[in-house]
Design a protein around this nucleic acid. Structure first.
Length: 445
DNA sequence: AGCACA
C-alpha cells in the first residue's frame, strides 16, 4: 500500500478552548450555544450559522480546561449534546480563537437574503415572495438566484426597520400554504441580512422585479412567441393596454371555433381580426379591436369567465404587444374581418351548416387536442356559449340562446339590447335546443 | 455530519 498521505480530516484534534460543533439546526442562536457550554465553564464567544448550510458553530471557552471538560463529558455521556432536539457533534476546533467578523449577515440592513428551503423551493414564484414580504412594508425590488445554499432571493425594503420586522416575523417560518399550489411541498424561509443596499434590476422577469419602476422593460426571455408578456406585477398584468387581446383557453373540453370567439368578443365592439394558434398544448387567440378602450372593456368583462357552463373553456386574457395583426389567409383559424372576402363568405357557412345540425352531448365531443392538429376533421360543434357575458352579444346575434348565469356581466357603459328571449332561456345545462347555432360572423356587417 | 466568504 502507498504511504499514508495527509488525512482529509483528523479525527482527533489537539485540544483547543474553541470547540467546533456540527449538525446544528440552522435556527440555532448564539444564546443556545452559550447555554450548551455554560455547564462546563465560561463561554466567552460563540459563532453560529457557519458553513454553506449554516449548521455548524463554534464555542469558545475562557479556559482550555473548560473545553476539555465539555468534550470529555459528551465523549462518555449516554445523552448526546443537543440543540432543539437535534444531536450536535463536537470536537476541538483547529483554531485557537473565534474570529467574529461582524459582517453582513449580522448587521441589519434594508436588503434581506432569503433562502427558500424545501422540495419545491424553486417553484415558489417571485410574486408569492413579493406578497409575503409586502406585509411588512413596501418591497422595492426582488431578485432570485440559485446558489449552493439553494434557491435564494434578495428582497429590498426601504430601510432596515421594515427589513428587520420582516426578518423577525418570517425567519424560520413556512410560506403559507394557501399561497402555493396544493401540490407544492412546504417551503421554509431562512433570512439573513444582505450587504446590499440597492439591488440592480435591469429587466422585469420571472427572476427579478423592480416594483419602483413598473415600466421597466421586460426581459426578452419573459416574452413568449406570440409577443406576449407573461409577467404579473402587484397582481396586475404588467403589459400595457393594447387594442389586441391575447386569449388563452383553459379546460378546453369543447372545441372553440373562430366563430365562437368572434361572437363572444363582438359583444364589446367591432372585432377586426382574429388569429388562433396552438400554444403549450392549448389554444390561444389574438383578437384585434379598432381601439384600446374596447379591448380594455372586453378584457375586464371576459377575463376568467368560461365560454361554456360547467367551467369549460375558461378564458384568460391579457394585452398583446401587437397593434395590428397580419392575417395572411382567411381560414378556420384566422380571419381579417375588415376585408370583405366573398370567397370566404361562401366557404364559411358550410362549416356552420354542418355543425348546426345537431347538438351533441358534452361527453361525446370532449376536446382531445388532436382535432385541430389532424386538419382532416372539422372541429365539432360545442354546446352553446352560455356564460354571463353573452348577455352582451349584439342584437344581430339574438337568436343565440343565451342563459344568464351566476355571474352575469353587464358592460359598464353600453349595454347592448337584450331581447326578451335571451333572458328567458331556462336551465343552466349549457346545451341548447337542437338546431341553434351562432350566426356567422359575416352577418354582423 | 467535518472548521468560519473561495
Amino acid at each position: 500500500m502507498a504511504s499514508v498521505s495527509q488525512p482529509q480530516f483528523r479525527y482527533t484534534q489537539p485540544p483547543s478552548k474553541v470547540l467546533h460543533l456540527r449538525n446544528l439546526p440552522w435556527e440555532c442562536t448564539e444564546e443556545e450555544l452559550t447555554e450548551l457550554g455554560k455547564p462546563f465553564g465560561r463561554v466567552v464567544n460563540t459563532k453560529c450559522n457557519v458553513g454553506a448550510n449554516r449548521n455548524q458553530a463554534f464555542i469558545e471557552f475562557a479556559d482550555l480546561n473548560q473545553a476539555i471538560a465539555m468534550i470529555s463529558y459528551y465523549a462518555s455521556s449516554s445523552e448526546p449534546a443537543q440543540v432543539r432536539g437535534k444531536t450536535v457533534y463536537l470536537q476541538y476546533s483547529n483554531r485557537q480563537e473565534i474570529i467574529n467578523n461582524k459582517t453582513t449577515a449580522d448587521v441589519a440592513g434594508n436588503v434581506l437574503l432569503v433562502t427558500i428551503d424545501g422540495q419545491d423551493a424553486r417553484l415558489v414564484s417571485i410574486d408569492v415572495l413579493h406578497l409575503v414580504f409586502s406585509a411588512f412594508g413596501f418591497v422595492h425590488k426582488i431578485t432570485t438566484f440559485e446558489k449552493t445554499a439553494g434557491f435564494q432571493a434578495l428582497v429590498q425594503f426601504s430601510g432596515a426597520e421594515t427589513a428587520t420586522s420582516a426578518k423577525n416575523a418570517l425567519d424560520g417560518r413556512i410560506i403559507p400554504r394557501y399561497l402555493l399550489s396544493e401540490n407544492i411541498a412546504p417551503c421554509t424561509l431562512r433570512i439573513m441580512y444582505s450587504a446590499h443596499t440597492d439591488l440592480s434590476v435591469k429587466f422585469q422577469s420571472h427572476r427579478s422585479r423592480d416594483y419602483t419602476n413598473p415600466y421597466l422593460s421586460v426581459a426578452p426571455s419573459a416574452i413568449d412567441g406570440s409577443g406576449q408578456f407573461s409577467l404579473v406585477l402587484d397582481g396586475k398584468k404588467l403589459e400595457p393596454e393594447s387594442n389586441v387581446l391575447l386569449a388563452s383557453i383553459e379546460n378546453m373540453q369543447y372545441a372553440v371555433t373562430l366563430d365562437v370567439l368572434h361572437m363572444v368578443f363582438s359583444a364589446f365592439g367591432l372585432v377586426q381580426k382574429i388569429a388562433m394558434f396552438d400554444k403549450n398544448g392549448g389554444v390561444q387567440a389574438l383578437i384585434q379591436y379598432p381601439d384600446v378602450q374596447t379591448a380594455v372593456v372586453a378584457k375586464e368583462a371576459l377575463e376568467g369567465h368560461c365560454i361554456y357552463d360547467g367551467g369549460f373553456c375558461k378564458l384568460h386574457i391579457s394585452y398583446s404587444r401587437h397593434t395590428d395583426l397580419s392575417i395572411k389567409v382567411n381560414n378556420d383559424r384566422s380571419r381579417d374581418y375588415t376585408i370583405p372576402n366573398p370567397a370566404m363568405v361562401n366557404q364559411q357557412p358550410s362549416i356552420l351548416g354542418q355543425q348546426s345540425v345537431q347538438t351533441m352531448s358534452p361527453a361525446s365531443h370532449e376536446y382531445n387536442g388532436t382535432q385541430y392538429a389532424s386538419g382532416l376533421e372539422q372541429p365539432m360543434m360545442p354546446p352553446q356559449p352560455s356564460a354571463g357575458w353573452a348577455s352582451g352579444v349584439p342584437a344581430v346575434s339574438q337568436s343565440i340562446p343565451v342563459q344568464m348565469t351566476n355571474h352575469p356581466y353587464m358592460p359598464p357603459t353600453s349595454m347592448p339590447q337584450m331581447t326578451p328571449g335571451m333572458m328567458q332561456m331556462p336551465g343552466h345545462g349549457g346545451v341548447p335546443p337542437s338546431g341553434t347555432v351562432p350566426h356567422g360572423p359575416n352577418q354582423l356587417y
